[in-house]
Computed example of a mutant assay.
Amino acid sequence: MTTDRTVDERQTDAARDASRTARLRTQHADAETVAAALRPDNTDAMETVVEGNTLVTTVSRATTGGLQSTVDDTVVNLTVADAIVDTTRTHSYE
């Protein structure tokens, strides 16, 4: 027997099944733009919230290895997005 389930129900199950969680708090000159750059790569196991100039990304995964991989990818993406935002803010190409 199969049961049709909504995306929200599947996401709730994924969060409930996740036993490992990491919260990354990073500060940025333009946190909204960095968050927008990261959102396309976010999975159902991730949540990103902007609090002023701070970006809070919470990752929940079922395994430590999965959590580590997702956090590693997120840190690289944060670094690149922040560098691009910083470069565009400090250089004028007129």
Rank of each mutant, 00 (worst) to 15 (best):
T58P: 03
T58H: 06
V75R: 13
T79H: 09
L78R: 04
T74Q: 05
R5S: 11
M1N: 04
G65P: 02
R16V: 13
V59Y: 06
M1R: 03
V71G: 02
S69Q: 14
V34I: 01
T79D: 14
D41T: 10
D4R: 09
R23K: 11
D4T: 12
T90Y: 08
A83N: 07
L78H: 05
R20W: 11
M46Y: 00
R5T: 09
H91S: 09
V7A: 10
D8K: 09
R39G: 02
A29T: 15
S69D: 15
R61H: 09
T87F: 10
E32H: 11
N77E: 13
T87Q: 13
V85A: 07
D82C: 01
D8M: 03
D86K: 10
V76H: 12
E9V: 08
V71F: 04
Y93R: 14
N77S: 15
R16T: 13
T6H: 03
A22Q: 08
M46D: 15
A62M: 00
D73Q: 14
Q68S: 08
Q11T: 04
R16P: 01
D13M: 07
E9P: 02
A83P: 00
R20Q: 13
R16C: 03
T87E: 12
V76Q: 12
N42C: 08
R5I: 12
V76D: 14
A18S: 15
T12F: 04
L55Q: 03
I84T: 10
T87S: 15
T3R: 12
R39S: 12
A29M: 05
T2I: 10
L67E: 04
V49G: 01
R5M: 07
V7F: 05
T74G: 02
D4P: 02
R20T: 07
A83D: 12
R25M: 08
E94G: 12
A37F: 04
E32Y: 05
R20M: 13
R23D: 08
V7Y: 11
R89I: 04
S69V: 02
Y93I: 10
T43P: 00
D17M: 11
S19N: 10
N53W: 03
T90C: 01
M1Q: 04
G52P: 02
R61Q: 12
S69M: 08
L38G: 07
Q11L: 15
V49P: 00
V85D: 05
E9N: 05
A62V: 08
V71P: 01
T58A: 08
M1T: 03
T12W: 10
